[in-house]
Structures are given as structure tokens and as C-alpha cells.
Design a protein around this nucleic acid. Structure first.
Lengths: 153, 153
DNA sequence: TATAATTAATTGACATATCAAATATAATTA
DNA sequence: TAATTATATTTGATATGTCAATTAATTATA
């Protein structure tokens, strides 16, 4: 009762579950970045994600990439730009559709994937430690409800 | 290579729920921004959040603000800077501790709070539409488990 | 087939995220 | 009290987020 009373007094927006979602993803990204940097110093979480997605889905366009990682096209353009500069990726000509760019992982990129895939798995395991499969399914289901609510509003 | 093969086949929530969390918060922020801009054109979701938090917790420092809205101190400095420029806030001297700044909401800021508080409530209601109180509690509980996992890792 | 509409990617402008270093003030301790 | 340590904020550098406008290539339509 007393705890709830205290909570009730400060009914700020950040006390709601929607900000808990925001807080969660921020904490998760922090441990991801921390663990990644232990192994590879010049790469970000997002850049690493792009590598892994690209490895699993070769020949996807930037727009498809954007959809897969829930980012804006402009963001993807810039992320890839930086990755090309750092020799993780190459842009080649797409013969079939010259609007699209063909993204190719370099040797350095492939090596980085090998180094960091276990880190990704560890991060996930750490974050979800102690959660039952049922809880994870519940979480997933509820989140998708919220996503749908937002999309159809 | 084999690790990626395994990962590709595993499209269970365990492998993806953390991305679903990210997706959820992005979709939510989109409808927030959209609805806010209908009413007030020159303010962002975060700036609006700062106003509301400040209104509920007068005399808080920037560091406390940062903690409340789950942001970095540097981000808060810049958000407030912009809000001062746009006449939503004033910075005054804090006599008791000159390191801290005293944040004061202007008339324009107060008026904006009146305009946008209902929008915040609507956004929340929209996002959580159709979720039972039990589901929201489950969501909150599971997310806090993840936060704890990350913080203590 | 020429024109219009669509699509993929880029660019510009601005806001926010993150880390590290710097600054100024306050509190603690030798 | 002087020197050290801690705290609050700022600043710089770099990455990403978002929106709108632009460019270039493709597809659809009159």
C-alpha cells in the first residue's frame, strides 16, 4: 500500500510501462556495446548488426536492411557509409537494378562476424537470463500488440 | 559459419524479442511525435517530456532529470539548451549550489504543458489499447527482470 | 514511345545518444 | 587552511534518428 501510494503521487509519464520499454532497450544496448568493444574496438552495435544481417541475407537492398533492423533509410545509408570507410563492406554495382547497391562483406567483415557472433549470443543470454520460455513468449506477444496499436492508430 | 546457420534457423522469440522491444519503442515514439506535432509544431517528444517532468518535480537538477527520463547528462544539457532558445525554459542561478542550474518553466512552457498533457495521455491509451491490467503488469515485471540482468552483468 | 508515377538511395538540417575530457563549484581530508 | 576528492554541468567528437527534398533509375500508363 505505502509503496503504491508513493508511486501514485508521482504519476509522471516515465513511471509508465512504455518508458520501462525504453529503459530496457537502453540498458540492453549498453551491455551490448560494452561486450562488443572488449573484442572489437572500432565497431558499433548497429554496424555489427548490419554485418550479421547481411551475412544471413546476402543481396538485400538498403531498404530491406532498413526494414529488418527497424531503421530509417537515411540512417542505413550513413551506417553503411561508415562501414565502407572502415573496410567492413564494399559497395558494388547492381547490374539488374542500378538504383540499388550491392553490399559485399569484406574479409575483415567476415572475420569480425566470427569474432562477434558469440558475443551477440552471450548478450542475448545475459539479458534473458532467468526468464522462462513462457515469459519470453508473453513479452513478445504483448509487445506485438502494442506495435499493432501504434501502427493502426 | 555453422553458428550463423544455427542462428538463421532459430526465429523464435528468444532470438528476436530484444529487437521487438526496440521496434516497439520506435513505433510508440512515432505516434507520439505525430500527435504532438498536430497541436504544437516546434517541440519534440523529449522536450515535451522534460516540461512535464519539470512541472511535476520542480527544483530538480539536470542529473536528476537525466535519471528520470533515462538519458545521458550531455543529452539533457543539449535538450535544455534548445528549450531555453525556444523560450520554453529559463535557467536561473541556484544560490545554494552554484554547480546546479535552476530550471524554470516559462509562460509558453506552462501553456504547452496544458496543451500537450492530454496528448500524452492519449498516446499512452492508444498504445496500450486492449491490454489487460494483468498483461501490463506482466510486461512491466518481465522488462524489469531484463533491466536487472543487464545492470548486474 | 513519351510522359508520368514509383522506387532506391542520397543529402541537408536538425535532434538526440554516447563517451571522454574539461570546467567550475562543493565537500572532505590531511 | 590547503590540497584532494567528488559532483554538476558543459563541450567536443562521432554515430544515429527523423523528416523533407533531391537525384537517378525503373515501371506504368496515356
Amino acid at each position: 500500500m505505502s509503496i503504491n501510494y508513493i508511486r501514485m503521487k508521482k504519476k509522471t509519464p516515465t513511471g509508465t510501462v512504455l518508458y520501462t520499454i525504453e529503459q530496457t532497450i537502453k540498458e540492453y544496448r549498453k551491455i551490448c556495446q560494452k561486450n562488443i568493444q572488449k573484442i572489437v574496438s572500432d565497431i558499433t552495435v548497429d554496424q555489427c548488426l548490419v554485418l550479421i544481417i547481411l551475412n544471413d541475407n546476402s543481396n538485400i537492398s538498403q531498404i530491406e536492411m532498413a526494414r529488418l533492423i527497424f531503421k530509417d533509410n537515411a540512417s542505413v545509408t550513413r551506417i553503411i557509409e561508415l562501414m565502407v570507410k572502415k573496410d567492413y563492406l564494399l559497395r558494388e554495382e547492381n547490374e539488374l537494378d542500378k538504383r540499388k547497391s550491392k553490399l559485399v562483406i569484406t574479409e575483415k567483415g567476415l572475420h569480425t562476424i566470427d569474432l562477434l557472433t558469440p558475443v551477440f549470443n552471450l548478450n542475448r543470454k545475459t539479458a534473458l537470463d532467468g526468464l522462462s520460455a513462457e515469459e519470453i513468449e508473453q513479452l513478445d506477444r504483448i509487445l506485438h500488440k502494442i506495435i499493432l496499436n501504434c501502427k493502426t492508430s
